[in-house]
Design a protein around this nucleic acid. Structure first.
Lengths: 197, 197
DNA sequence: TATTTTAGTCAACAGTTGTTGGCAAATTAA
DNA sequence: TTAATTTGCCAACAACTGTTGACTAAAATA
């Protein structure tokens, strides 16, 4: 035994270097415009290593672009501040360099990469949907979650990808208050007629 | 004289065929994943014609992706239905196959194409901004327009590009009412403190 | 009709892409 | 230290990219 192919300390270090470089480049340029040669150059290793470590460029992307949103349990928070809580959480996630940085990666790539789009729908389904669902009547849960997603992703798109000037300049507290109020209305369902599923 | 290089009826027909094919493919696959060979095949002509007619792939894209939103003059409409009017207008534009179809094209491509992103910012600046500006106090105009853009583009993103199921299923009247209310709040500035520019 | 101009095709170019096999160097295990 | 693996680099591949020039067929002009 004792033949760990790819788990020696040196291997783990370069493996992580590749992941970091890939995450940065995918976030900046998207999937298509990021080449394995670019990633290799940034990680300081030969491009061929990327294939040997991850099998293919697509496989590498799949491993990079799986962010955990760590959404808070909204059923526990005061129902009056659900919107603010959600927006604050997302801004903290996106503004920092944490693992949630996988979100801009997906947003940049989802436009032309069906796999990335599927990944984003999955995140929406498994993380945003349950969190929003508990904040209102179950019948209207899909629509409430859909509206929340449209505003939240629109914010991320205009602020981090398209970089529309006034949206970029807005201080976090301002966004939390204004957009938070919208999310609040969507999530609670106060904007829906009682008879529409 | 009488040497119109590219204005003979036959030339105009194939030129239009190229534009149509390009518009469709750009909208479906985005800029990067659309090749001149694909466009040529769909238009039924040799790929080299595309270069001879438009100069380059980028030039073709620039001509395709310049949609005119034809936004209504909101200063003339009742200030109470500004939101609904705007959302209804965008849905009509996007839902149909008209010239406004250039919007999904841009949205798909803007993620990885800086030129497309710039184009989208330009459209925002020259069309959405003025329309929204007249609906409230001038000092808050940039922020109001920014918020409007974030919700409007988020709607287009989730409904036409990412195709988040519940957002796709929403009937237009539902969107006009719910999202329209949000746009109304953003555009009028009723969600802003009076002292924040 | 004769002639000039244009539309269109073909083949090929130079560059870039993801990916692979062979070989030297370094690290690990004994 | 010596032997066994594995990390890493190099060169090259096949496929695909946008783009170009030469040549043929068609159309417009006279």
């Amino acid at each position: 035994m004792t033949k760990p192919k790819g788990s020696t300390p040196k291997a783990l270090r370069t493996r992580e270097a590749i992941e970091i470089a890939a995450r940065e480049l995918f976030a900046i340029n998207g999937f298509d415009r990021t080449t394995v040669r670019d990633i290799g150059a940034r990680a300081g290793i030969d491009p061929s290593m990327i294939i040997r470590y991850f099998g293919s460029k697509d496989a590498l992307f799949a491993q990079i672009a799986a962010p955990d949103l760590h959404l808070p349990d909204l059923s526990a928070t005061d129902s009056g501040v659900i919107g603010e809580t959600l927006v604050r959480h997302f801004l903290d996630l996106w503004e920092g360099d944490g693992v949630g940085g996988g979100m801009p990666v997906l947003l940049r790539s989802a436009a032309s990469n069906e796999e990335a789009a599927e990944q984003l729908r999955k995140i929406f389904l498994t993380q945003v949907f349950p969190a929003v669902a508990r904040a209102g009547p179950p019948e209207t849960a899909p629509r409430r979650a859909g509206l929340v997603a449209s505003q939240l992703l629109g914010l991320a798109l205009t602020r981090y990808v398209l970089m529309v000037p006034p949206v970029v300049m807005m201080p976090p507290e301002f966004i939390i208050r204004t957009v938070g109020a919208t999310i609040q209305r969507y999530a609670s369902g106060e904007c829906l007629s009682p008879d529409e599923a």
